[in-house]
Write a protein that binds this DNA or RNA. Structure first.
Lengths: 228, 228
DNA sequence: CGAACAGTTGAAGACGATCAATCTGAGTGG
DNA sequence: CCACTCAGATTGATCGTCTTCAACTGTTCG
């Protein structure tokens, strides 16, 4: 949920993702390198040297962390416009895998660093996005700590519906590019619990499972059963 | 867990908290305003206009969020050197309360913003600290999602022991300024569960409750029962 | 056509929350 | 100095939710 930057502060954002002025845009593109990915493409592993910062142009990327005992936590899904791969200690702490066909832009960390130092307003955008990311994570901590499985799944679905990428408001169809274990590991519950939660929501006529990766969603009803 | 900044990049840090060069230090002090606080002092409430950024000089500050149903999540404890109160949307999302007698420095958001824009390296320090904060929160998410109550309490104790503020390595005594409900709401468990977990650790001779706010800690044994 | 795998559903068990009772310690007034 | 009080902490017993294990279904791919 991090987006890029613009030169002049205080100018209104046209889209939700934030406007990018030509000069910033071109400066970024000048140091960027595009990659086409397909489902399963590994962008980086935890422990790798953190050489690049990534940005999703299209597709979905899963950020996950493997634990010593073999368990896995999915920390985020990154959609179009999102930035990932910012590591503080010189090494990536997490894995990044493409879930979908898509296009990723990546920037050498040192060169991006230089660019940010030479463009304070652009760096400020990054800083603002980082603080926004912190707030989002705090939301997630609250969700994990205080709510039951059904509510977690509802929150997850709402988050997905917020993405034009995978939710079509006209047809009310949500396309989920990730597997049930991905969802389960994202919400910190068992795969079976996700299934059961979806079952509950379907019985309540809030969703309808067209197939495993396509849900029809009654968005208003989904929203008011969140109570967040 | 955010600290301040220095002018020249790449220079080694003297303390863990990061060195601050005189010019940055003085520039910050010029726009700063010191406040003395006592236990219970409210720095800000969720929903307040986010006018200031805060930094702890001494003492401990609790960052918490109240939910609609009356439950509360403690999101962080801020110790000496930590920064808090960075809000993306113009309003604080959380509450900040002093737990201890101490001294807080605060900066008007707009003036700090100006200062950061005029000092790219200083802003870069903030950005780095923000990404470090994101990593810490990811750790917290994993902790909340995957581990049992005892492990959570162990992780909490280790976090506290990392602070020279409250842990004396010589005497092995940890001084906890927060109450049991604070700890419970921080780890997302019930108060009773914290008590029981401390009981377990005491029976295992890993800690000894001198009184409610003072624990004798066998740090090596505590460390290897973490398994994180 | 059959194997392998993802997803779903069912039954049993474990862990932690909740409720209630007891204990501890600090502050107060006799 | 000691009993009293009150809040916070601890302990015990019960209950509910979610995990785990296992069986079953449906889909995809050789």
């Amino acid at each position: 949920m991090v987006c890029l930057c613009d030169d002049a502060p205080g100018q209104p954002e046209e889209q939700g993702r934030g406007a990018v002025t030509p000069s910033d845009q071109t400066a970024l593109m000048a140091i960027g390198e595009a990659m086409d990915v397909r489902p399963g493409t590994k962008l980086f592993r935890q422990g790798d040297a953190a050489t690049h910062i990534y940005m999703v142009e299209s597709g979905v990327v899963r950020i996950s962390h493997d634990l010593l005992d073999g368990k896995r936590q999915v920390l985020a899904f990154r959609w179009g416009g999102d930035v990932f791969g910012m590591a503080a200690g010189g090494r990536y702490l997490n894995n990044a895998d493409a879930l979908d066909k898509g296009r990723i832009q990546r920037f050498q960390a040192e060169r991006l660093q230089e660019l940010l130092l030479s463009r304070p307003h652009m760096q400020n955008r990054f800083l603002l996005q980082a603080t926004a990311e912190i707030s989002l994570q705090q939301h997630r901590i609250i969700l994990m700590a205080k709510y039951d499985v059904v509510t977690k799944v509802v929150a997850f679905l709402l988050e997905c519906c917020g993405n034009g990428q995978c939710f079509d408001p006209a047809t009310q169809i949500l396309k989920l590019p990730m597997s049930r274990p991905d969802i389960a590991d994202y919400m910190g519950v068992a795969t079976e619990s996700v299934s059961r939660a979806l079952g509950v929501l379907e019985r309540r006529k809030i969703i309808h499972r067209h197939d495993m990766h396509h849900l029809a969603i009654d968005l208003p009803r989904l929203r008011d059963c969140a109570r967040l």
